[in-house]
């Protein structure tokens, strides 16, 4: 991996509601190299969006450090953060809610540039046109409104909006989840093209592990606000080490009628963050849990070069399942 562009250490997030404290994220640590695409996967409520937003300080983390290109973001003042912001952009899941219905596409795309005071209005519009071309939309879209476009086209507009600021780092939060599969493939191909062409660094959030495998170099697996496993994609999919990763992969329905279906079905529900299990948070559903799992919080450890897992059982690696 190249020198990290982003270094996240012991990131935590708590919310206090009606006197009780909810721990949403705990001890989140990972790096993203320059030009690397890292996937963040986990089920609903596992904390993916909270990590993505905390990293860009769209919400304030409760503890921990986020270094971007050597600068500690959590210590920046509001105006310093505003200056740093164009280098990092967020792409939202919902292509319908994230674009204002009252603004033209041109206004939407140039808004960020205007706030940054970049160029004059003609130069800004030129950048917007160029960004539209990058996402394969006609440049004359600048005069139209979001409702005139389909879901896939709106998601392209969302991507173009992020690109006008020429960022180095993008957090893409479920950018294709709201799209139909035939359109999803168009947008995935586009994102991968752009990432390669522009050398973008990306944190790609998704609950779809097949999409993540296709687009990411490395993958972080989350469960109830804790990192369970981190591994290069090729290795994670061929040989998952953590019991949760195994179960997650096994639960994905395959369209291949010849795939053998001796799937492993996890029992029970995802616990609530208001009432997390002691020790390993996965233990209430883990098929490999032993009594000690209730007592020790597993640390995220490097068990092989580039492979990290948070599980106290070392006897489970390899293809045991």
């Amino acid at each position: 991996m190249s020198a990290p562009l982003l270094e996240v250490r012991d990131l935590a997030k708590q919310y206090t509601t009606r006197g009780s404290t909810l721990t949403i994220l705990q001890n989140i640590s990972f790096d993203i190299g320059k030009g690397e695409v890292v996937g963040l996967v986990g089920e609903s409520g596992s904390g993916k969006t909270t990590i993505g937003r905390s990293v860009l300080r769209l919400i304030e983390p409760s503890a921990g450090s986020v270094r971007f290109d050597g600068t500690e973001l959590t210590e920046l003042s509001a105006s310093q953060m505003r200056r740093a912001r164009p280098r990092m952009q967020y792409i939202f899941q919902d292509p319908f809610a994230s674009l204002s219905p009252r603004m033209t596409i041109g206004e939407i795309l140039t808004e960020g540039l205007k706030i940054q005071g970049t160029g004059n209005s003609k130069e800004r519009l030129d950048r917007a046109r160029k960004a539209l071309e990058q996402v394969d939309l006609p440049a004359d879209a600048v005069n139209r409104y979001a409702h005139e476009f389909s879901g896939g086209q709106r998601q392209r507009i969302g991507i173009a909006r992020a690109l006008t600021l020429q960022p180095e780092f993008i957090v893409a939060d479920e950018p294709v989840s709201a799209l139909d599969v035939s359109i999803q493939a168009q947008v995935i191909n586009l994102l991968r093209d752009l990432q390669q062409r522009l050398g973008l660094t990306m944190l790609f959030i998704s609950h779809d592990l097949a999409v993540v495998e296709y687009i990411c170099d490395r993958v972080i697996v989350l469960y109830l606000g804790r990192v369970m496993e981190i591994a290069p994609s090729a290795e994670l999919y061929a040989d998952p080490h953590h019991p949760y990763t195994r179960a997650l992969l096994s639960a994905i329905p395959s369209p291949d009628p010849d795939a053998h279906r001796n799937r492993q079905i996890l029992k029970g529900d995802i616990p609530s963050p208001a009432n997390p299990p002691s020790g390993c948070v996965f233990r209430t559903r883990c098929p490999k849990a032993i009594s000690r799992c209730a007592e020790v919080v597993p640390e995220l450890r490097e068990t092989a070069p580039g492979r990290f897992k948070a599980c106290i059982r070392d006897d489970l690696n390899g293809s045991v399942s």
């Binding site: 896939g152 599969v181 035939s182 359109i183 493939a185 168009q186 097949a210 495998e213 090729a234 999919y237």
Partner: peptide, 28 residues
Amino acid sequence: GLLASMPKLGDATRMKQAGEKLAAIPGM
């Protein structure tokens, strides 16, 4: 087209390494 546009678990790594793209259905 639908079947081809779906990334398939386990096959995506191979596609990525081979530089293959997902077969998207054009248009809408």
